[in-house]
């Protein structure tokens, strides 16, 4: 490990030790900041992937962040025809609206009846199928076909 303050050697922040990256992210109360922090460079991204995993598996850690509301009327096609973007309303930052890019374009026509712990329930009426989807990790899991639910 290079000595802190080694003369004449420019400091490379991308080499910041993981435990310090995690300490910094603990001080970001807006989830948008967390996401943008992790998309700065590869090493920060992989350091935070681990803490993302922790956040996704621990409801108590999710409480570090205030919820973002998905704005259904802000689904939009982007220049890239295979992607679409969503509007997210931040409750803590004076109603600031973020645009979440790079989502699969199929989501444009799907219906989201609810969410839990960061997972969105996505219903595709055309197929028909139900999936749960995490918009930040992009993890997607299929749920059993609709006809297995007697009430539907």
């Amino acid at each position: 490990m290079a000595a802190a303050g080694e003369p004449h050697k420019p400091k490379d922040w991308s080499e910041l030790p993981k435990d310090l990256i995690v300490l910094i992210t603990e001080r970001l109360s807006a989830y948008a900041d967390h996401v943008r922090f992790s998309s700065v460079c590869f090493s920060w991204n992989s350091a935070l992937a681990r803490s993302d995993e922790l956040i996704n598996h621990s409801p108590s850690l999710q409480h570090q962040y205030f919820p973002l509301l998905v704005l259904p009327n802000r689904l939009k096609d982007t220049e890239d025809k295979n992607r679409c973007s969503w509007g997210l309303l931040s409750l803590t930052e004076n109603g600031k609206i973020y645009k979440l890019h790079g989502l699969p374009k199929e989501f444009r026509s799907m219906h989201c009846p609810g969410s839990s712990h960061g997972w969105l329930v996505i219903v595709d009426v055309a197929t028909p199928s139900i999936n749960i989807f995490n918009p930040f990790t992009r993890a997607q899991l299929p749920l059993p076909p609709m006809d297995t639910f007697r009430s539907m």
Binding site: F42, S43, G87, Y98, G102, P135
Partner: peptide
């Protein structure tokens, strides 16, 4: 230091 492909896949949050 992301490749253009990774950059493409990246979830970006932008202020709107």
């Amino acid at each position: 230091d992301f490749t253009p492909e990774e950059e493409e896949e990246m979830i970006l949050i932008e202020d709107e």
